[in-house]
Nucleic acid binder design. Structure first.
Lengths: 138, 138
DNA sequence: TATTGTTATACTCTATAACTATA
DNA sequence: TATAGTTATAGAGTATAACAATA
């Protein structure tokens, strides 16, 4: 759709999609969660969460653990891999997100504006990643 | 995904989705276009454009017209309805898009930032639409 | 040969509704 | 009865690959 292009390219590096990343993000903030609470947080149907979690289990980002007191529920939990990817993602984006809104260009239209914001966001993200790589290799 | 919720709600009023609106937007800017050029502008596959145009033809926003000189190609063209919806969309958003970036809050993280920007964008859009309705009924 | 758009196929994200197991 | 998560079904958006018509 509109703006996923650069975004998806970045996430694909980790084998992630936008929706799955959003779920991981919520999980990273909230800790182990039931699918119901994820559905509420993401504002999607519980059926949808089933599918997202299926995908994330397959790709090793989360596991389904039994809920300690409610045998109907499962606790979706980040794996070590999931934790480390989310930690890196947070680290990478915490800096440039603020820079994004310095000296913003003027926007005149809806769609163009949206694209421009996200363009900027992901160009900064890319620049940020490049910097980090340089630091590592330095 | 991430941020389509409020957006989709607004567009659904017109029987549109995000992707179809993006195509209409490009068409509104560029005038009648081949599907190839739309695919390039939207950065999606031509197969995808076929599907988007199919949907927009069904719902009366565009027509497929023969290309005057190349019989392989079609010219996707806005209907009167398509023109009027895009004109209104441009009118409604031209004002608030600038307001969006006055006094922006600080963003600390990637996902939260994205959500917050778009939250703000669509709240302003909603407020804008309410204002217009008030003007009409006044 | 190359290009335009289609059909064939497949995957992700999304939804509602019916169902199972549990509370 | 109500809730958590599943299966069943459906539709939109996306992709690649094979193909037909035309350039």
């Amino acid at each position: 759709m509109f703006l996923t292009e650069d975004m998806t390219r970045g996430l694909a590096r980790d084998g992630l999609t936008l929706s799955r990343t959003h779920l991981l993000w919520v999980l990273h903030q909230a800790g182990p969660s039931t699918q119901q609470s994820l559905a509420a947080a993401l504002k999607v149907s519980s059926r949808n969460v089933t599918g997202l979690v299926d995908g994330l289990v397959e790709t090793g980002f989360v596991t389904r653990e039994p809920h300690p007191t409610d045998r109907r529920a499962t606790l979706v939990t980040l794996t070590d891999h999931g934790v480390s990817v989310m930690a890196r993602m947070q680290r990478e984006h915490i800096e440039f997100a603020n820079a994004l809104f310095d000296g913003l260009p003027e926007f005149s239209v809806f769609a163009a504006g949206l694209d421009a914001v996200l363009d900027r966001l992901y160009k900064l993200a890319a620049a940020n990643e490049t910097d980090e790589k340089n630091e590592v290799s330095a």
